[in-house]
Design a binder for these strands. Structure first.
Length: 286
DNA sequence: AAGGGCTTCAACCGCACAGTT
DNA sequence: CAACTGTGCGGTTGAAGCCCT
């Protein structure tokens, strides 16, 4: 057996004692793991694997449980709100996937990491720019994120027209001014996490009214009105980074891809027009 | 229909670090 | 204090499914 892990002596010993399984988990293995944890709880993964009769490493059991079998794991497409939050939190913390995941209940760090690599990095690659470059970050901040905000607003406007908005216990509520709508959210931000237990917390799901700008160096801010706008309220933050006086200011009225109703898909935040526009911007500025 | 390329995501790996012995 | 053990994290891989020709 190919044992590459050298940092975990216990794993090596386990390998020597019995043939360890690798690769995809079977239904039987899943059931064993779930049953054992239901009875004995999680933790002590190496011994858990042994006592549960699983020919897996403790690490493998832990990963399978946390990323797949845990009852509160959310599956399915990343929603627009989640996309927005991921972009925002990544702009703050970088590849701190587990930290980001803490603010998206039910989403795992692995899932977020995969999302970033398959969607966001792919776009950067297609634009032939580095995902960590200022240009790409500005693109996220001034184009993709406002685009997502607009889409969320559009979706909310549609849903509230048919069903009365109801903020249920445990959900968070976007503040008034976020498109004038009350948007229930199920995630928490660093700013609200301490108060998330309250039944209705009036916080920004994406930005704290100060934090976002505090983290932007003065000479990194393309818009002199930016900070001032941030002082005046949540909605101004969004409007200000929708129309920064930068590379993207020549959108005029022609470029409003996020208002294209046909493109309101939850898993693609960039359509053909977006991409062509961005390519032009990048070529122009390079 | 087939097969080659691409995308997605579950799973693995190596490392770091904290706790325990 | 050193060795050992358990856990968590970020990076990477590879199998499976999808898409295109």
């Amino acid at each position: 057996m190919d044992v590459k892990a050298k940092g975990n002596l216990q794993s090596d010993q386990d390998d020597e004692q019995m043939e360890l399984r690798r690769g995809p988990w079977t239904v039987e293995e899943d059931l064993k793991l779930v049953d054992y944890i239901a009875t004995h709880g999680e933790g002590r993964w190496n011994s858990l694997a042994l006592y549960a009769g699983l020919k897996r490493t403790g690490k493998s059991c832990r990963l399978r449980w946390l990323n797949y079998l845990r009852p509160d794991v959310r599956r399915g497409n990343i929603t627009l709100e989640e996309q927005l939050l991921i972009l925002e939190l990544h702009s703050r913390w970088g590849n701190r996937w587990s930290k980001i995941a803490q603010h998206l209940p039910g989403r795992t760090d692995n899932e977020i990491k995969n999302y970033w690599r398959t969607r966001v990095q792919k776009q950067a690659k297609q634009l032939k720019c580095d995902v960590n470059s200022k240009q790409f970050k500005d693109t996220m901040r001034y184009l993709w994120m406002p685009r997502l905000v607009e889409r969320i607003q559009a979706a909310v406007a549609t849903s509230t027209a048919t069903t009365a908005a109801s903020a249920t216990a445990g959900q968070l509520v976007m503040p008034q001014g976020f498109g004038g709508e009350r948007v229930t959210q199920s995630y928490t931000t660093p700013e609200n996490s301490s108060t998330a237990a309250s039944s209705e917390t009036q916080v920004s799901p994406v930005f704290d009214s100060n934090d976002y700008y505090v983290n932007v160096p003065a000479n990194d801010n393309p818009n002199p009105d930016y900070f001032q706008a941030s002082q005046t309220g949540f909605s101004h933050q969004y409007s200000s980074f929708i129309s920064p006086s930068t590379n993207f200011s020549n959108h005029g009225t022609d470029f409003q891809p996020w208002l294209d109703g046909a493109d309101i898909a939850t898993d693609n935040f960039m359509n053909c027009d977006d991409f062509l526009f961005l390519q032009q911007q990048f070529n122009f500025n390079m």
